[in-house]
Nucleic acid binder design. Structure first.
Length: 472
RNA sequence: GGAGGGAUGGCAGAGCGGACGAAUGCGAGGCUCUUGAAAAGCCUUGGGGCUGCGGCUCCCGUGGGUUCGAAUCCCACUCCCUCCGCCA
């Protein structure tokens, strides 16, 4: 599928899940494949991992989710809720069937003018009905409970994910350049100082308007942000369709990507209109085909969007508060794909390659991390992070996170495709930033700082900044 | 903000109280015919749960109500569309 991989970088990318997607027995796998045909009932059965897997392979699911820190008690609660829900609805259905049968008899009795019998039957039916209603209420409460548990459960990690429960266990796959050259004296100034001195970053002004961690860029600082966006969009234009989505979205839209219900505290919510400010363009893009059945020949569908991103950063108070290390609002170019399960590995590699290539063209040092099972985002089955090195603050800054979400989001958003055989199956979704600008901006400013205090503009950006080569 | 209209299977669209899980058309799959293709004809074509694997049953935006019986009647909610007003 070279057609969507115009700029192959080195092909030594890691293997992102071979065909044995989950490292379990083949029965498990075939059940993964076989159960793509039941996405109709939007209420319970298309959320997160497949409920059927829970029934058929409870140990495998428990083990797989255990790798990312879900306790077996939690999985058991899920299984119990499912069982209880099925029992209740089966009983309810049996009662409904009886009511139905009786009403048929009523019709007969009426026809044969047997009003006494009709009377009796009616009375019995009423009893059944009230019993049915009680049971229906129970069943629906149980359904809500199951639904809730399902929505809270994260995706099953790919077997290739490194073991581990925290970011300590992430694996550095490679570094570029292999050995980071020692930074020169002039590079050892943090970007907030460089930015302030050159008048291109005014954190105080941003704080005045909106509070701390809302940066304000000025002059060439702002221009460089625009340049980065144009540079990236042009870069991906060969294969990715540019989208400018809304940045305020509904609750369902946030649910689909796995950002809700569990992580509500991380997002900005507009209470009056019940809309959420997107934390990433992945959110609206994943809902672009909500409820649709795509044609297999249209896959992979590759999308690209530049949007602002909003994050409350709750729970990280006091950490990384300097400069642009952690901000509430930043701009980002996001790549997103809908594809078949078979295409996913290649698309994942392609997005990673594109993000890497951008960093290389910007002349920044970076490394690629393979996130361990415990550090994955809720929706992801496998994630690679890209971190650029910022010599001024002497830190690695995460500027991209490239995730394969298998069918987790597709299930929640109910996005399927029809294969030539006629059947439907959930698509796979992938996303990755290419790239998140605030931190890239910081790394560029620090890396390109010169002895005289000016900052030279990376060659790749000069065409987008009127051909100039220096910010001074 | 105001006034209307609508939500049914992959899509379009009928059904307006009793055999409707749902007509019809299109699409899709299979078969026949053909050197092949087209055309034509025949058949199949939503999903869940239970099951003694022969079936049974539930689901017509969501939730309530009326009724012996609801896709069909009533109420509420959600979403979509049209028109008017206001505004970039």
């Amino acid at each position: 599928m070279e057609r969507f991989n115009g700029q192959a970088v080195n092909r030594s990318q890691p293997s992102v899940g071979d065909n044995e997607v989950f490292d379990l027995d083949s029965g498990y796998l075939s059940s993964v494949r076989a159960c793509g045909h039941h996405a109709k009932q939007a209420s319970f059965f298309n959320d997160m991992i497949d409920v059927r897997l829970l029934r058929t392979e409870p140990e495998a699911v428990t083990a797989a989710l255990g790798r990312r820190g879900v306790t077996s008690a939690e999985v058991e609660a899920l299984i119990a809720a499912d069982r209880s829900h099925r029992e209740l609805s089966a009983r309810r259905d049996r009662l409904r069937a009886q009511v139905k049968e009786i009403s048929r008899q009523v019709a007969d009795a009426r026809r044969s003018a047997d009003s006494k019998l009709a009377e009796q039957l009616t009375a019995r039916s009423r009893e059944f009905r009230s019993e049915e209603q009680a049971l229906a209420a129970e069943a629906s409460a149980q359904a809500d409970q199951l639904q809730h548990l399902l929505m809270m459960t994260p995706n099953i990690p790919a077997s290739e994910c490194p073991e581990g429960l925290s970011d300590q266990d992430n694996v550095v796959l490679r570094q570029y350049p292999e050995t980071i050259p020692p930074s020169r004296e002039c590079q050892r100034v943090p970007h907030w100082e460089v930015g302030a001195r050159l008048g291109i970053l005014d954190l105080e002004a941003g704080a005045k308007m909106s509070g701390s961690m809302f940066p304000l860029f000025k002059g060439d600082g702002s221009a460089m942000l625009r340049a980065l966006t144009s540079f990236a969009l042009d870069h991906h234009r060969d294969a990715f369709l540019e989208i400018r989505p809304p940045t305020l979205v509904r609750t369902e839209t946030m649910m689909s990507t796995g950002h809700l219900p569990k992580f509500a505290d991380d997002a900005y919510h507009l209470e009056r209109d019940d809309l959420w400010a997107i934390p990433t363009a992945e959110v609206p893009l994943a809902s672009m085909h909500r409820g649709e059945i795509l044609r297999e020949e249209d896959l992979p569908e590759l999308l690209c969007a530049a949007t602002p991103c909003f994050r409350r950063e709750a729970g990280s108070a006091g950490r990384d508060t300097r400069g642009l290390l952690r901000v509430h609002e930043f701009e980002k170019v996001e790549l997103f794909a809908f594809c078949t399960p078979e295409q996913a590995e290649e698309v994942h590699g392609d997005i990673l390659a594109r993000a890497e290539l951008l960093i290389q063209e910007l002349g920044l040092a970076y490394r690629v991390l393979d996130l361990c099972a415990g550090d994955l985002g809720a929706a992801s089955a496998r994630t690679f992070d890209l971190e650029v090195y910022a010599p001024g603050c002497d830190r690695w800054l995460e500027v991209s996170s490239i995730s394969w979400c298998s069918d987790y989001q597709a299930r929640r958003a109910n996005v399927r495709f029809r294969s030539p055989g006629g059947g439907t199956a959930f698509v796979h979704t992938l996303n990755g930033s290419a790239l998140a600008w605030a931190r890239v901006w910081a790394a560029v400013i620090e890396t390109y700082r010169q002895d005289d205090g000016s900052v030279s503009i990376p060659k790749a950006l000069r065409p987008y900044m009127g051909g100039r080569d220096t910010i001074s």
